[in-house]
Design a protein around this nucleic acid. Sequence first.
DNA 1: GTTTTAGTTAAGCAAACACTTAACTATTGT
DNA 2: ACAATAGTTAAGTGTTTGCTTAACTAAAAC
Lengths: 107, 107
Amino acid sequence: MSRTTGNADVFAAIADPTRRAILDLLSQGEQPVKQIAQPFSMSLPAISQHLSVLCEVKLVTQRKEGRQRFYRLNPEPLKQVFNWVSYYEQFWQDKLDVLGNYLEDNP
Amino acid sequence: MSRTTGNADVFAAIADPTRRAILDLLSQGEQPVKQIAQPFSMSLPAISQHLSVLCEVKLVTQRKEGRQRFYRLNPEPLKQVFNWVSYYEQFWQDKLDVLGNYLEDNP
DNA sequence: GTTTTAGTTAAGCAAACACTTAACTATTGT
DNA sequence: ACAATAGTTAAGTGTTTGCTTAACTAAAAC
């Protein structure tokens, strides 16, 4: 299995800026849909659909309380993104090393 | 400026598994298009188009040599992804802490 | 100079995406 | 019971995406 396989569609889920903003919002704590929707200039169904996408890839979980649905961040799937992108850290780190060595050799 | 703004479409670029695989491939070093295309069951134009997308968000650079085009990984834009996702590290770290505290309190 | 080789660009297409409005379900308040 | 509130589901639409094949450009080889 390659490094890329199995990441499913978490990458696709966070490709949308609105969904990333929703995750950022939920990092403050769980919130009902209306409150989530408030900062966005977008219909409520649109937000609901974005939440469905996030739900499907398990980036959020749902809790029902009365007629409200509280959505909560579930960060675990982001580990896949973190792991994938972390691999590339060495490359910009390497570049820093090159610069560092250059500065050492040319004081 | 929110944490999400300015990430441009790097997130969209890496949403596609083929493009992630291409980046993985190029992490081994620069390669001409034909060599990049080889592991994929996809037409050459398809790969060329994927490379264009990666080029547009500056995740790869091009070098022309004879009739070959060598593509090289440029990891810098991935920092945006790294920075965004790193913020969430605390949340799965926090969960570990919660577990850690629980284990401490319940030896 | 014609033919390979390497690759991009053009045109077209089916599927997916990000919305919208309208209709629906379920809970709460009167 | 009835209306208001919270949210989802359905249906429709314009745009974007990921591919294809065919036509093109440019360098190399013969």
